[in-house]
């Protein structure tokens, strides 16, 4: 027993070193910008770069749009599958898993051929409609996580009883969906939302190939041209990811404390 415990500690310590050393390395490197002393100069440079603010803001906005569209698409679908069309569950689940099977680069490659400016639906013809296409592509990326989260949330509430109660009280279908079902899976949507946010915020492939000024392509550009700023950006990106995961945990705990049902 003792021996296995030592082994466990060794495994854990090696793992911890592997994961912590790059973080320390990144942080240390990001402080090196001024010769001979540690300073937050790289952070100052990054945070005052108008392109940083613009691209980060753009990606935040895209993430928000993605989350909203994802929720509007996924919640009614999961609801109807649960309530009316359980036979279609395998098909819908398969579709939601497709983005895990198909690399992002494949999906966006298809978009570029299918929706180019000379096609039947020229979504890449101007900047606004390309933004729309980019957010659609992000919705596909988010689909596996969003659907899984909402599905789990929906199984934990009694969808049928809630719906019937709503019907007896004379509520319309839309009222039931938006005033009863949505609030009840709020926590699930939120955790799916923050996961989506973490994925979308630094996404590179799709934004780069659709030629939009997002945070991911900005990071890549800085990485190719600067020395210390990339490390500062990596630290910032890590903190954003960490914040998203932290919020998911907090939100998840809220659920178990607040409502036993």
């Amino acid at each position: 027993m003792k021996q296995s415990k030592i082994g466990a500690w060794i495994a854990f310590i090696i793992g911890a070193l592997y994961f912590i050393v790059p973080l320390i390395g990144t942080f240390e490197f990001s402080l090196r910008m001024k010769r001979g002393e540690y300073s937050f100069e790289a952070y100052r440079v990054v945070l005052t770069d108008p392109n940083f603010l613009a691209s980060f803001g753009y990606s935040v906005l895209m993430a928000l749009i993605t989350v909203i569209m994802g929720a509007v698409l996924v919640v009614p679908t999961a609801y109807w599958i649960q309530l009316r069309l359980p036979k279609l569950r395998p098909i819908v689940e398969f579709i939601t898993l497709l983005p895990l099977v198909m690399p992002a680069i494949i999906i966006v490659f298809g978009y570029l051929r299918l929706y180019n400016s000379s096609s039947w639906l020229p979504l890449t013809a101007n900047a606004r409609s390309t933004d729309l296409l980019l957010s659609f592509s992000y919705v596909t990326l988010a689909l596996p996580y969003m659907y899984r989260a909402v599905e789990t949330g929906m199984r934990s509430i009694d969808v049928r009883t809630l719906t019937e109660a709503g019907e007896i009280l004379g509520a319309s279908m839309m009222t039931i969906l938006f005033k009863v079902i949505f609030p009840n899976v709020r926590v699930a949507i939120l955790s799916g939302a923050f996961l989506t946010f973490a994925i979308v915020i630094g996404e590179f492939t799709m934004a780069s190939l659709l030629n939009r000024p997002a945070f991911g392509p900005y990071l890549q550009l800085i990485g190719a041209n600067r020395a210390y700023e990339p490390s500062a950006l990596a630290v910032i990106a890590f903190l954003v990811t960490w914040a998203c995961m932290g919020i998911i945990n907090v939100v998840g705990n809220l659920k178990s404390n607040k409502r036993p049902a």
Binding site: V21, G202, F204, G216, G223, S231, T241, C244, M245
Partner: peptide, 24 residues
């Protein structure tokens, strides 16, 4: 949960500043 989502461009920066030619 954090590290499995910490992929992409920033991850490359992290390893460059750790194990690159001038890395820690």
């Amino acid at each position: 949960g954090v590290a499995s989502n910490f992929a992409g461009v920033p991850l490359a920066f992290a390893f460059l500043s750790t194990l690159g030619r001038m890395g820690l």
